[in-house]
C-alpha cells in the first residue's frame, strides 16, 4: 500500500504522549507544581497570594523547563525519529506529532499541578485562568524554540548551551537591558517603545498580561494609564495574542523547515 496515512500526526502524538507521560519527568513536573501550590495554600496563602507567588515560578521555570527539556527530548528521540522516517510518514507530520506529544503533557502537567489545589481550596477566578493560560502559552513557545534549536544544532551540548543561554537572555538579561535603556533615555517618552519591547519577549509579554490582574491599581497610576489602556484593550489583547502566536509559529516554522531538509 502506498497511500499516506493522514492520521500519522495523531498516531505519533498518541504514542509520544504516552511515552512522555510514563517518563517520570512530566509526573515530577506536575507534582512539583502541585506540591508548590498546595504548600502555598498550607502556609496560610489566600488565592491571590498563592497566585502571586506562582507568578514568578511560572515566568522563570516554565520557559527553562520547556527549552531545556524540549531540546533534550528531541535529541533523545533521534532514533525514534529515524524509525518513524523509515515508515510512510511525512516529516512535517512527524514533527507536529513530536511537538504535540511533548508540549501538551508538559502544559497539562502544569495545569493539573496548579489547578487541582485551587479546585480543592477554591479561589483563583479570572486571574488563575490567566496564569494557566500564560503558563500553557509559554510552554508551547519554549518547546517550539527548543525544537528549533535541537534541529538546528547537531551537537547536543552546543544546542543545550544555546537553549540555556536563550532562557537566560529572555528571563533575566532582557529586562536588565530594558531597565538600563529606560534609565539612559529617561528624557524621552518611552511608552510606545516599552510596549514594543514587551511584545518582543514572550516572557515579558506573559508577565505584563498577569500584571493587568495583579497590579492594575499601579498601572492606572501611570501617566494616562497607557499601559493598562493598551494591554487591557481589545486591540492590545489582539496584538499580545498575535505576538505570542508569532513566538510560537516562527520558531516552529523554522524548526520544521530545517527538520524537512535535515539529514538523519
Amino acid at each position: 500500500m502506498t497511500t499516506l496515512i493522514p492520521t500519522a500526526t495523531a498516531r505519533v502524538f498518541q504514542y509520544e504522549f504516552s511515552d512522555v507521560l510514563r517518563s517520570r519527568w512530566v509526573t515530577l513536573y506536575a507534582l512539583f507544581f502541585f506540591g508548590l501550590t498546595e504548600g502555598l495554600f498550607q502556609f496560610g496563602g489566600t488565592g491571590t497570594g498563592v497566585l502571586l507567588s506562582l507568578l514568578n515560578v511560572v515566568l522563570i521555570l516554565i520557559p527553562l523547563v520547556g527549552v531545556v527539556f524540549g531540546a533534550l527530548y528531541l535529541y533523545q528521540a533521534r532514533e525514534f525519529v529515524e524509525l518513524m522516517l523509515a515508515q510512510p510518514v511525512r516529516r512535517g507530520e512527524l514533527f507536529a506529532g513530536l511537538y504535540a506529544g511533548l508540549s501538551l503533557p508538559l502544559a497539562g502537567g502544569f495545569v493539573l499541578g496548579v489547578g487541582v489545589p485551587f479546585l480543592l481550596h477554591g479561589g483563583g477566578g479570572a486571574t488563575l485562568a490567566m496564569l494557566l493560560a500564560v503558563g500553557v502559552l509559554l510552554t508551547l513557545v519554549f518547546v517550539a524554540l527548543a525544537f528549533w534549536l535541537a534541529v538546528r544544532f547537531e551537537d547536543r551540548v552546543r544546542g543545550l548551551a544555546v537553549a540555556v543561554g536563550l532562557w537566560l537572555a529572555g528571563a533575566v538579561l532582557y529586562d536588565g537591558l530594558v531597565l538600563a535603556l529606560v534609565a539612559a533615555l529617561s528624557a524621552y517618552p518611552l511608552e510606545r517603545p516599552m510596549i514594543a519591547l514587551t511584545l518582543l519577549n514572550p516572557i515579558d509579554l506573559g508577565r505584563v498580561l498577569l500584571l493587568l490582574h495583579f497590579d492594575v491599581s499601579a498601572l492606572m497610576g501611570y501617566t494616562g494609564a497607557v499601559f493598562e489602556r493598551f494591554f487591557g484593550s481589545t486591540l492590545g489583547a489582539g496584538v499580545s495574542l498575535t505576538a505570542l502566536g508569532l513566538w510560537l509559529i516562527v520558531p516552529l516554522g523554522l524548526g520544521l523547515r530545517r527538520f524537512r531538509r535535515k539529514d538523519f
Partner: peptide, 16 residues
Amino acid sequence: RNEPALLLMRSFFVHL
C-alpha cells in the same frame, strides 16, 4: 525616577 520602568514590575531581574 523613570516611570516607564513600571512595566518591568515583577520581572526576575527586578527581584534580583
